[in-house]
Design a protein around this nucleic acid. Sequence first.
DNA 1: AGCACGCCGACT
DNA 2: GTCGGCGTGCTC
Length: 792
Amino acid sequence: MIASVIVDVPAKQIDRTFDYLVPENLQAVVRKGIRVIVPFGPRKIQGFILSIKDETAVKNLKPIEEVVDIEPVLNDELLSLSEWLTEQTLCYRISALQVMLPAAMKAKYNKYFHLLDSHGIPVEMKRLFEKESPLTWKTADAHHALKDLQELIRHRKVEMRYVVKQSANVKKVRIVELSNENIEVSGNAKKQLMIIEELKKSGGKLSVPVLKELTDATSAVIKTMIDKGILIESYDEQYRDPFNQRTFDKTEHFKLTDDQQKAIMPILEKVNSFEQQTFLLHGVTGSGKTEIYLQTIDQVLKQDRQAIMLVPEISLTPQMVQRFKGRFGDQVAVMHSGLSVGEKYDEWRKIHRGEVNVVVGARSAIFAPFKRLGVIIIDEEHEMSYKQEDSPRYHARDVAIERSNRHGCPVILGSATPSLESFARAKKGNYHLLELEYRMNNQDMPEVKVVDMREELREGNRSMFSRDLLEEVAKRIEKKEQVVLFLNRRGYSSFIMCRDCGTVMQCPHCEVSLTYHRSKESMKCHYCGHEEYVPNECPECTSEHIRYFGTGTQKVEEELFKLMPHVRTIRMDVDTTSKKGSHEKLLNAFGRGEADILLGTQMIAKGLDFPNITLVGVLSADTMLHLPDFRASEKTFQLLTQVSGRAGRHEKTGEVIIQTYTPEHFSIELAKSQHYEWFYQKEMMMRKTAQYPPFYYISLITISHENVNKAAGVCSEIADILKAKLTDQSIILGPVASPIARIQDKYRYQCMIKYKQEPELKSLLKKILDQYSHTGKDAVSINIDVQPYMMM
DNA sequence: AGCACGCCGACT
DNA sequence: GTCGGCGTGCTC
């Protein structure tokens, strides 16, 4: 019996299967889809069995060392999906396999030195081994002993062993139960009597933490009783429960409006007929998309099938989880980055074992190992977070459609502001377009006001708040209503510039300006992590006139305090929400009315739904507009529409104020009137002229190297290859320096391919990848993103 | 990716 | 004459 294995080494030359002999004693468990540990060269590494066969052309097979799983972790569907993913994204097969599993299942490797023969080895070395045996690589390195050890290995005095460590561990809880032997306990032993009492009450078996809680007994008491034989201890597997101690109120079906009913019918039809169909559910905020999702899932569950519901990371709020857990209870697993590695592993195991039938999660939940998918839903379909930015660079939407084809089930893409690509496909009839035209309860859309900040400046207002905004904020607070202020800080946090010579403080390793962080009085590079103190004088001209530009949330908070010291503000950004659960805490506090203003970045644009919010202010609408990205207008429109949706979701009508320096830009004008269709028409015209998606597909090749000329040279070679091999209907742009021309001392050049039809492109790109991804001194690093979302 | 093997410069 | 630099090639 021979197993073909993909080993855990992401490298060009290793990106294929290696055959191994299956030893007799493992033949019963070895199947495709299980993980194994195999010898590979001098070391031992983890691998995935892709297939089993009886013959091979390879001589001198090595045997599989051990198996990691009893049950396959990847079923046939996911194995073949990984092949598809590899082809689509041009990634290594091992990366495609790994991305489907929780991080906890990634192997860790350790090296140990074992002393074989202590005769004639240096005293210090002996001492090292006395302190630690086997000796870890880490301590050996710390004592600068690696070189000597190498020598000793050559003389067979020391041996190096490779150990594969599994980081995934199952949480165990200690259980004690009463033994049958009725051993006398003295009347003095009150705690012991209590323990026996409690155990009897609860059927003779309890976990140690619970028992301690109930009786206030110490570990010593329990240990004594175990030693005496009164109690028997054992261990039980336990799931880490991220929602421990939380109850979810059962929620019931809403009666669907006619509008919703009309939308859900075609979906249910496909659910019932087991047919693939991609639906685009277009409905403004508050039009009741979620209820459609819930009722579709309900139908799927009735058929004993399963559902995946994807939401953008930042909108996976407790409110959202509440809604799903409330409706489907224990049938729901939740997967998002806020969970610990162990918690994610446990949620995954619930899915794998078939203990849940619904998963609500961020991007990677698209790989949930369900066997009978009945529907896949992607909420906020247009969100960028569905595209993974590192290898495998997949888009969850594409994976969803691929999986739905294999399972014969519908996909629902939901959004108030669909991506142009999706809307265009829906218009063409590739997707089935479903429109929800009315808001539930027939609320009015909030009134949107655009303030021209240039005007403000002309009138002498140099602050970041327009007079209109300040006035409105004051009004709301007086009425005891709440305000949300939104600052799109992403990529444009404060930078520092010398007012005399105009020098902007830059990262020494990247072509990026440094970001000022008030809390540490330091400047950080967002790309390489470089950090330095704020200089007292300009490094170029020694002037002391240094000015802080740009506006971060911290600064807004301060300014706000200066202007209205009595107003209570909650700030939400990466800095204040990095701690686990802090996101929820802040939102809850705001919901309870403990603050008047919620000030934040992207993350507050979604999901937030409090009845008392009547004003939403966007401090600077155009920061995103000027990014070097053909989707800049689209993103701006989406964001502004999204943010506006936060105001007046309930009885009180809301107002939105958008501050901008370019009020005449169509994406701002149309966000004001909330007219998606017009925006779509206008933007489509722009895309057509500029030859961008959805009219053309694009692929982006990025070359990076320490030497500018090398990077530019290789990039130019590649451009030439492309020009020579591709049809003349394709457009090759570049080579040009990447918008971020240098990261971590590596210069970056890129080349963009725009094409409509290019059947040979994938194989050509693969060839290029092969040709240029050799390892060596002057090797460049090459990245290819098929359908990129980030142009930087 | 690691790691071993192997071929040319500065040392005992 | 040897130690050690890192270029090249292999891992079932």
